[in-house]
């Protein structure tokens, strides 16, 4: 039962942390519960379907179907998270003149949530399909007992959701005017980590060269399977023994999304001036 709980927790953790960050990033947006909840439910339904077709998927495309599928899911999520960040930055600069609590709330209120909902759905789908396969496997083997399995699964799920709630409540303590800068960074790092994971799948499918099988090895310091290693893996894409191509994808994602954010957002936000801030015409903002 405990083994079941640990494995389910591990799979749920990554998706739960993403949901926690997305909930914090959409703080104050009307209907965000529906959007994010919809993403989670859609992801779970998708996970059941994917788990049902696991064998077909593995055999597809001359045996690399699983790798292609995982990479596609990850890169789609990267695109969604990147799009969200770029959108936020553009509107942040439009509203930079009113960079106060009200401005932040207005900015948040007009934020479209489909990209974040999609990213949540994809993360839940990917991690969820493994949970479904795993639990199905235990049920099929029939050696643990259905009750122990259900209890273990529920405990693992609860622990994962607690971690997601933890990061959410930690983040929402940040004052509104800083919150979106912080979540923006977190989402950027999430995206880079996912891109590096996607590259690992393409490397496994032999579609990319490794560019150095092991760039460095920090597994003696912080192994991938430790709790801290897993949390950092989910949040910033940590891996103890990265291949060169993973670092290339990681940095390229940071650079591309970061550059696009800068381009649409213009120069760094103008310093606030006493009194003048509110009266500055939006049309004259840098980058407009």
């Amino acid at each position: 039962m405990l083994a079941t709980a640990i494995i389910v927790f591990r799979e749920v953790l990554e998706a739960a942390l993403i949901v926690g960050i997305v909930m914090a990033a959409s703080q104050g947006v009307p209907g965000r519960g529906i959007w994010v909840g919809g993403g989670v439910v859609g992801g779970i339904l998708g996970a059941v379907v994917v788990a049902g077709f696991a064998e077909t998927l593995a055999a597809a495309m001359a045996g690399i179907g699983q790798e292609i599928f995982n990479a596609a899911i990850l890169f789609a999520a990267v695109a969604m998270l990147g799009w969200h960040n770029i959108w936020m930055r553009r509107h942040a600069s439009e509203l930079a003149a009113a960079a106060n609590r009200l401005g932040a709330a207005v900015r948040a209120g007009s934020q479209p949530l489909w990209a974040l909902a999609f990213a949540v759905g994809l993360a839940v789908l990917r991690e969820g399909s493994e949970v479904v396969l795993f639990l199905y496997g235990i049920a099929a083997a029939g050696d643990g007992g259905a009750g122990a399995m259900a209890l273990g699964g529920a405990l693992g799920l609860a622990a994962g959701v607690t971690a997601g709630a933890g990061i959410y409540f930690g983040l929402v303590h940040i004052p509104m005017r800083h919150l979106f800068a912080v979540t923006s960074w977190l989402i950027l790092l999430l995206a880079a980590g996912m891109a590096s994971q996607g590259a690992a799948f393409l490397l496994q499918a032999d579609l990319l060269p490794p560019l150095g099988t092991t760039l460095w090895d920090t597994s003696f310091l912080l192994p991938d399977h430790s709790l801290t290693g897993r949390v950092l893996h989910a949040l910033v894409g940590y891996t103890a023994q990265p291949a060169g191509i993973q670092l290339v994808f990681y940095l390229a994602t940071l650079l591309i999304i970061g550059t696009l954010m800068r381009l649409v957002g213009g120069a760094p936000r103008p310093a606030r001036r006493k009194g003048a801030a509110g009266s500055r015409p939006i049309g004259l903002q840098p980058g407009e």
């Binding site: 593995a58 699983q66 496997g137 099929a140 490397l203 496994q204 092991t214 103890a240 023994q241 993973q246």
Partner: peptide
């Protein structure tokens, strides 16, 4: 982790 491999094998 060291081989960078992760693949599900159905029964």
């Amino acid at each position: 982790a060291s081989l960078h491999r992760e693949k599900v094998i159905s029964p």
